[in-house]
Design a protein around this nucleic acid. Structure first.
Lengths: 233, 233, 233, 233
DNA sequence: TATGAATGAGGGTTCATTCAT
DNA sequence: CATGAATGAACCCTCATTCAT
């Protein structure tokens, strides 16, 4: 194997400007981290993917961890900026929810599936600094919708009998699980349909409770209790 | 420097039956994998935790990966068996859901948080075999509730306008997110409250759309069950 | 080069007891550190000298620095123990000095020349821990003679008009320079003669000043001053 | 990330003559080698200190080793020239000794402590060429005093029962040890006092053995010198 | 000339795994 | 059977040096 890079197209000339090299490396690193996770991604692999020597990686980044942090920060920066721009403009909680759900699925199914996995995986031990960065990014990413939900609660447009935190877990948990499924089964769902369905499902959960339903629930409880008392034991 | 186990109390006699050795190793491995994750758990650590030499680990298991697979399989086996035993006995979809949610939170927050994190983290790259095993386990683990939901859909007790797969994503996604939150923020939520709230939230999402009809159906369902209990004994 | 160790005699069998391996590694490390200094000594070189793989070095020692510390500590331990045993038994300061000088030359010219250089070289930056260890060792090594000199001063057998520290600098500085000379010029001096001469030279410096000499010195000062005043400028 | 020199003030204009560049680089290199030692000084550090790019260093010097050799040669050249100029003018061996001792301490404690350490440390392994250069420089540096001592021996003003080499070891060994002590303990001794005491201590060692005779000889020596000065002008 | 860019060669260290005893 | 001992294969990272521009 005389030239290990012979099968790899080099996207930049052998001698490139700093800006180009940085972009190249970040792109390569994003791919490699996506595919292999943090631990599985070696600096050698990243260098190879970028078509440079391993040492060059360290010319531009302080180390593997810093490179990964940059990759994640950049990625979250992109998708967060989109949401921060679009979500506030949308009218009503339901529309905002629908947009976030759709954007999430589109973004992550499109190119970020690996990064999504990376983020889900590396959100814990062995690299606390990484975990902290991820936590920060996630906070920013979820902020637009969380803000809308909080406002919705205040205005009675979102049910108030559940802590906001739990609503967030429901929304993002459901979305992540859908993605996870898509990733692990390698089946790409029809995004439009799935997004609409998921939005509706979530909306059913977080919309305010109907008064008559509540009354019936109370009735149910009473009946249940009465039956329980009526039984022997 | 060798002989790291000299200062460790041995939990089993020097000569133990093969079965005991295996159990010891599995118990030790479960602890270590829980605390350190797959990559962070070294065979040295596991051997030390089991009070045996590193080589002994390889006498009983083909390698680190196989050991981890066994640990995960065993653990999922335990919690799946519980669900398989208890869920079918419960009356009505709502009760089943409530039970699964509660059991999930109890199990994972109680002792399994590390394993939960392991499963969530390692369900991917670098160890495809592990990922496959985890996927299988998850399928079995979710089966009881999925079965109930499918039946519920058939009987009109669960909304039929959503694919079952999406209901599953909602249920388990929400639960996992709650757990993940607890794990990463190191805050243990009040399990009872959280379980009830989460159940209600999910139920709101998956109950049939005509709310009053739905409520009445559940009422009928429960009354029927109660009567059934009231008669035979 | 099919087998890199083919030209090296292995002093221990391929599988040796821990104690033997440790001794082997320490001996090999002593040689390599002696010849190449701390920075120049690579773990690969040490492993090769010991006839083991590089990884084996790390089985027995926490790292290069710890290994070097052990080497230095051991070596100083040996030669310090000798002095601590022999010096106090000798009658009189002069005899003790003579013994220390001779022992120093013998020891360091015999096998320790490289270690001497190592100790002289590495007594500063880049490895503060190493420097600290060396400083400690040196203190212990010089203690027996320093003790004798202090006593000598107290009893008037050693001149009292010089700080003890300066006496130490004279004694050990002179010895080290002799060694350094021998090392760099690769000429081994006749130890007996050199030791005797050096002892005498040092003794002349540290013996109490003769009274008449002092008087003459005072006279000289007065004459000098007088002449200075007598001159024009 | 490149362009590390952007935050450094440039000490010379962008276009400087070759001579200036060389001087700048040598000055920067002297500082860096002083502070970090040979191995610890990186070419990057030196270039940064000189306000030029790393590649420029190699435009003017063949490599790190050659640069270091130049630095050491220059430095020794300076201090040797001083001694070569001053020492022969001083009257008598004792005065010459006193001057050398004082100059040595002043020079090395003042600005050259780092270089002193460099010279002491690097006078050996891993860089034989460097060691050879240092040896040469040292020979030149010690020559003035050695010449005086040799003459002193010839005239009976210095004891003749010791080889000159040993006298040198005593003189320079003691001085170096004093310096080493100052460097490693970071305590700067009072130079005047230390120089006087050290001179006296050494003088006691190298003065002719018959103490009173010796003293008288020195007296005669000094009177003679004084008279010589008193007459011509 | 001066340099931005790139790298080959190696450094210390880790760890799952093997094997003779 | 259990293990002490040993290691191959990588890993992340450093740095003096080269070269096209």
């Amino acid at each position: 194997m005389p030239s290990p890079s012979s099968t790899l197209q080099r996207t930049t000339p052998r001698r490139a400007s700093t800006a180009h090299r940085v972009q190249d490396l970040l792109a390569a690193a994003r791919r490699v981290f996506s595919e292999h996770g943090y631990q599985g991604a070696t600096t050698a692999l990243i260098a190879q993917a970028a078509g440079v020597s391993e040492a060059t990686v360290f010319t531009y980044f302080a180390g593997k961890r810093e490179l990964c942090i940059q990759v994640i920060t950049d990625w979250y920066g992109e998708i967060s900026a989109e949401l921060e721009r679009d979500v506030p403009r949308l009218p009503g909680v339901h529309a905002k929810l629908a947009h976030v759900v759709r954007a999430h699925l589109v973004t992550l199914l499109a190119d970020g599936s690996g990064l999504c996995a990376l983020v889900l995986s590396e959100g814990r031990a062995a690299e606390p600094e990484l975990a902290a960065v991820i936590a920060d990014c996630k906070r920013r990413y979820t902020a637009p919708l969380m803000h809308a939900l909080a406002e919705g609660q205040a205005q009675g447009l979102v049910r108030q009998d559940m802590p906001l935190r739990l609503l967030r877990d429901l929304v993002y948990g459901a979305m992540e699980h859908v993605l996870w499924d898509a990733i692990t089964t390698l089946k790409r769902p029809r995004i439009d349909t799935t997004a609409e369905q998921l939005t509706e499902l979530i909306w059913s959960a977080i919309a305010p409770r109907d008064a008559s339903l509540s009354a019936l629930m109370r009735l149910r409880d009473e009946v249940t209790q009465a039956l329980r008392h009526a039984q022997p034991s």
